[in-house]
Design a protein around this nucleic acid. Structure first.
Ligand code: AMP
Ligand code: AMP
Lengths: 211, 211
DNA sequence: GAATCATAAC
DNA sequence: GAATCATAAC
């Protein structure tokens, strides 16, 4: 099995990876991304898809899309809870779920992750742009996407990876290290490192969102 | 001022870097290493040395060596205290102080650091070997070093940088990423993440060492 | 996708 | 020294 098929091992033998597999149902396996690009980063893997299918192709199947949507939703709620539990309280837990326009790994997978991009594994511009540009396709936008030619679309989408690094509104050009510092600072500031007593009433909207 | 002389700024204008300068005396400035290779990593900079002097040349001056020794000792004690304060209790705080055989940066500087090499800034084999092979010259061994030809010695020492990565007794060859994982795990395990009540009597030897 | 190595330019 | 970019080999 070449590296391109590495995600297949979790589908084939989830029991072999108890530390990586978070959820194992008849139709899905949910794993921790082995190289998480944010503080929390999961992959949702539908089991019944041919390994080399492009996600947009796979999700033309309304039934698969709908089942995956339900699982993604479930994992999003887990992420919110886990974030609050492990990272201390935060005013708002921001989560993004979606696919890469041109996945490197086979086996259809949906990224479900916090949006911080504050992680030791975020090492280059490609990593950043793959999650913060149009190269990242939010899961909910998939049904309305109009992609006449998948191949042409992929070629076009791939250019987004090479573009300038933009954090918030600020353009960092090719200064990845500087942008990374910013992302790490932003995460640190956004996370409340105080005692629970300091939490204000209006900070509970996340708990409501996930309830 | 080219990058090679960047450490000179702390000597020239310590007041401009309050976040970096830990100690400023008539003869020394002590700074936090800007790219720390261990959890705690300081540089001791004697002020009265010409910028492009090799440390072994500078420390032939017994008076300078002795004054630096006293300052290094002082910083080592600070490091021990800081480690216990910030990283949680640990059974033994291991500290290494010394110079690189072939420094890249000018302005004589002595590294005073914990030995963990567990740091996001440790990024390659060169970093590792520069602190874990004979390329790193412990400060206390300097007076007894016999180096007839500094140039020849440096050429020879430089080869150590290219060697296999060895952690504890284990040879990691060129597998830096794997070695780094080990270093991070080791640090995590060595550091006690429990409550003070779990500390045993014989764990206080560090405090005695520094008292 | 990750990781090692080499190479400019600062 | 740090950082960006390109390149094999997996
Ligand atoms: N062996 C692996 N196990 C788990 N996750 C992986 C593995 N190899 C790569 N990944 C992750 O899989 C994702 C593949 O990205 P992409 O194909 O661009 O959607 C990335 O987020 C990787 O960090
Ligand atoms: N601008 C800087 N400020 C503080 N420390 C630095 C700076 N640039 C490099 N360093 C550190 O200086 C040390 C120089 O290493 P060396 O010359 O090999 O002894 C390394 O540990 C670097 O991380």
């Amino acid at each position: 099995m070449s590296w391109k098929y590495a995600l297949g091992q979790y589908i084939k033998s989830p029991e072999k990876f108890p530390n990586d597999v978070t959820l194992d149902t008849p139709d899905f396996v949910v794993i921790k991304d082995a190289f998480p690009k944010s503080h929390i980063h999961y992959l949702v893997l539908p089991k019944a898809v041919k390994p080399d299918t492009h996600p947009l192709k796979a999700f033309e199947d309304d039934n698969l899309y709908e089942k995956t949507r339900a699982m993604v939703e479930k994992v999003e709620k887990m992420v919110a809870v886990e974030f609050i539990r492990t990272k201390g309280y935060s005013k708002d837990v921001k989560i993004q779920s979606g696919i890469h326009s041109v996945p490197s790994m086979n086996h259809v997978h949906v990224h479900v992750m916090t949006t911080d991009l504050s992680s030791p594994r975020l090492k280059n511009r490609t990593h950043f742009n793959s999650f913060r540009t149009g190269f990242f396709v939010p899961f909910r936008t998939i049904p309305d996407l109009k992609v006449p030619s998948l191949d042409a679309w992929m070629v076009s989408q791939e250019k987004l990876i090479k573009g300038d690094i933009v954090v918030d509104g600020e353009n960092f050009g090719n200064k990845f290290a500087k942008a990374k510092r910013r992302l790490d600072e932003d995460f640190h500031k956004a996370t409340i490192h105080g005692i629970p007593e300091e939490v204000e009433d209006d900070d509970y909207r996340v708990m409501e969102m996930i309830s």
